[in-house]
């Protein structure tokens, strides 16, 4: 698995550097024409450009939606971290994937297209979140559906209990010894303790 992956990456390497050059020219044009204001703000905010490949906010955002496939960190590409490795920042795999993402962004693909491309390359585990379609949609539906069903049930229970409460006085109070103890306790309560727990 890793071997296949490594050869793939080495094949891709020359392409990447080409893309990187392309991206630079394309981006300077784009930036000047369209995003001058945004850029100014971003520059002002961050002051220093990060050293890694995360050049655009979009690529950075995408890097948090894609899992690092090195198999050791279980983190997203953007958060990849190896406390036990020689370098605790993003590992080689994460940096490679980040470069891929940058290349995709430079080509002007949409987020969905990019994520789709990543899935084709690495398989469905690459997505940090389960996709919202097919069987995996259940992952999203259940945490909403189950509480809603539970809410309906609670509502039904409340309705029944209230029904009981309105019926109760008609039969006359049946006083159990336990209830008597509780009633005495509540009656003996001092002021300042009246709303107990």
């Amino acid at each position: 698995m890793t071997d296949i992956y490594k050869t793939r990456k080495s094949e891709r390497a020359p392409q990447q550097s080409l893309c990187a050059q392309n991206r630079f020219s394309m981006f300077s044009v784009l930036r000047i024409s369209l995003r001058a204001v945004t850029l100014a703000t971003i520059l002002a905010m961050s002051a220093i450009a990060p050293a890694s490949a995360q050049d655009t906010p979009r690529a950075k955002a995408l890097s948090k939606r894609v899992l690092c496939m090195c198999g050791g960190c279980e983190d997203s590409v953007g958060l990849c971290n190896h406390p036990g490795g020689t370098f605790s920042g993003p590992c080689e795999t994460a940096r490679g994937m980040q470069k891929d993402l940058d290349a995709h962004v430079t080509r002007g693909e949409s987020d969905d297209q990019i994520l789709q491309a990543m899935v084709e390359q690495y398989g469905p585990t690459v997505l940090v979140e389960p996709p919202k379609k097919g069987f995996d949609l259940l992952a999203w539906i259940m945490p909403i559906a189950v509480p809603l069903i539970a809410l309906v049930l609670v509502w039904e229970v409340v309705r029944r209990w209230r029904h009981k409460a309105t019926l109760a006085p008609a039969g006359g109070p049946q006083v159990s010894p336990e209830f008597l103890v509780r009633a005495q306790r509540e009656a003996n309560r001092e002021p300042g303790r009246e709303h107990d727990e």
Binding site: R65, V126, V128, E129, G134, I144
Partner: peptide, 20 residues
């Protein structure tokens, strides 16, 4: 569950848990 039903593993990462 997903692996059991679909045969392929998927990831459920932190963003999912945060959103939910």
């Amino acid at each position: 569950l997903s692996e059991w039903v679909q045969g392929s593993k998927i990831s459920v990462g932190a963003p999912f848990f945060n959103k939910v």
